[in-house]
Amino acid sequence: MTGLLLVAQNIVGGLGIGCVYALIALGFSLIYRTMGLVNFAQGNLLMFGTYLGLTFYMGLLGLGKFSPFIAFLAGIILCGLIGIGLERLFRPLANLDLSYILVGTIGIGIMLDNIANHIWGSEGIVVPAPIANNEINVGGVRISPYIFIVMAMTVLLVIGLQLFLTRTNFGRGLRASAQDREIAACFGIPVNTMNAVAFAVGAGLAAAAGLLIAPMIYVNPAIGDSLGIKGFVAAIIGGLGDLPGAVIGGLLFGVIETVISGYISSSYTDLIAYLLLTVVLIVRPEGLLGARTVEKV
């Protein structure tokens, strides 16, 4: 296989994974933008939401199997409900130093991890793709068709999010950024409801991301931290709080990671992700797309 074809293959694969990272990054950025808070449990919510969805998809707890579509929705909605619950839980802290909520989400994250361990066991599961996934050959480049499902679903979700943010009352209220929170409150926008919506949507996006990537990885309760970090890296690259940036950052990171993993073993690509995060933060904390919402005061 020629070098160019290999690169093309990696790019396609990278874009697929990148879509997933984009969804995770969107969740981070949305919550940050609305509440000024980094949701530490984003990765853990991803993992938990994935398991919830998979329970229906694969009949994991003896609940019977459902269609992938229903399972997908179930995972997202249930996870979104958890998100709402989290906002409610941490509401009394919303006016204090946000670090408390951050630490609280750390606690929640570790609880989610181990509750999942308890319910579904710590051994991983292999998730079958919802469609026949034989590799097809497009002009010499080998691609698994499932990637297109991932991309299509991501596009749908992003468009849906965009419509939600621009066309609905909820969405417009959300767009008041964390800095203008006081002004938003002055206009009668219920801040707590906005936070709950942000958390719910963020959690839902995480679940969607996890469910989409599930057939491509070995699913176990430990995937939350690793995917969460990568989603965070993507969000930072695009500028935390910047929604289009999150998408671009996710795609970019997906492609970079896939290309590099062709040369180095996978555990070390994780290492590179974390180091990349550090470097980006030192060199250009506002992300590659410039300072829009992040201001170092």
Binding site: Y32, L37, V38, F40, L98, S99, L102, I106, D225, S226, G228, I229, F232, V233, I236, L240, D270, L271, A273, Y274, L275, L277, T278, L281, I282, P285, V294, K296
Partner: peptide, 21 residues
């Protein structure tokens, strides 16, 4: 080192990542 440039919330996740690293 990132502490010199970024807000504390980022740092939590950065330290998480580096701890895993």
């Amino acid at each position: 080192l990132p502490a010199l440039r970024v807000r504390s919330h980022y740092l939590a996740l950065v330290t998480l990542g580096l701890g895993i690293a």
